[in-house]
Amino acid sequence: MHADQRKKLINELTDLIRGGNAHVTLDEALAGIPAHLRTVIPDNLPYSIWQLMEHIRIAQKDIVDFSISKDYKTLIWPDEYWPEPTDSVSDQQWEESVKEINDDQQRFFRLLQNENKDLFSPLPWGSGQNIVREAMLIADHNSYHLAEIVVARRLLGIWK
């Protein structure tokens, strides 16, 4: 792959992960959610906005950790991927979760930009996964759950 092709691919994958093309961004999905509604589970949905956001954080961190290190520790599905319901979430907990989502995306973007990494070679500690696949997995997973946050917001009457 030529350097200019690699750069274009990295830019496309980065934009895909950030969102905003065919789906809302994390910032858009979370903007203006009243604190008292973060943990409310809307009728006929299984999760609150907080649980969805935490699931995004946990799953994305898992994917990034797997992509970066052979010392990756597998999480137990579904117990370690989904937080339990809670009655309240502090502003500090909320902000720390959003920050970690953004920080882990930055960690992944640095991996993508590392010219010493082959984006298509299978990760030696995996079962055929490569960095491009993991980038698409992050984007796909996050967009799916961001859409669920939008649905929850609509049901709570707090979407545009």
Rank of each mutant, 00 (worst) to 15 (best):
E28M: 06
I10W: 05
I68P: 03
T14K: 06
L9N: 12
L13R: 13
Q60H: 12
H36Q: 15
L45R: 11
V64S: 03
H55M: 11
D27R: 06
I56E: 06
K8S: 10
I33R: 10
A22C: 04
T14Q: 10
L52G: 03
V40Q: 13
L16R: 06
Q5E: 14
P34S: 12
M53L: 15
H23N: 09
I33N: 07
H36M: 08
A29S: 11
A3C: 01
D43I: 09
V40W: 07
H55W: 12
A29H: 02
K7N: 12
L16Y: 03
D43G: 12
I10Q: 03
L45M: 15
N44V: 11
H23C: 03
L37C: 07
H36I: 09
W50D: 07
I49W: 01
Q60A: 08
S67Y: 10
N21Y: 02
H23F: 11
R38S: 00
E28H: 05
A59T: 15
S69M: 12
N21Q: 09
I63F: 13
D62Q: 14
A31P: 00
V64K: 02
L13M: 15
D4S: 14
I41N: 08
I56T: 09
V24P: 00
A3N: 04
Q51N: 08
S48V: 14
A35M: 07
H55P: 10
R6S: 01
D27L: 00
R38H: 08
R18W: 00
V40R: 13
L9G: 10
Q5T: 11
R38V: 01
H23G: 10
A59V: 15
Y47V: 04
S48M: 10
S67N: 10
F66T: 13
S48L: 08
D15A: 13
L13A: 12
E12I: 09
A29F: 01
D4V: 06
T39Y: 04
A29Y: 03
H55Q: 14
I56L: 14
G20L: 04
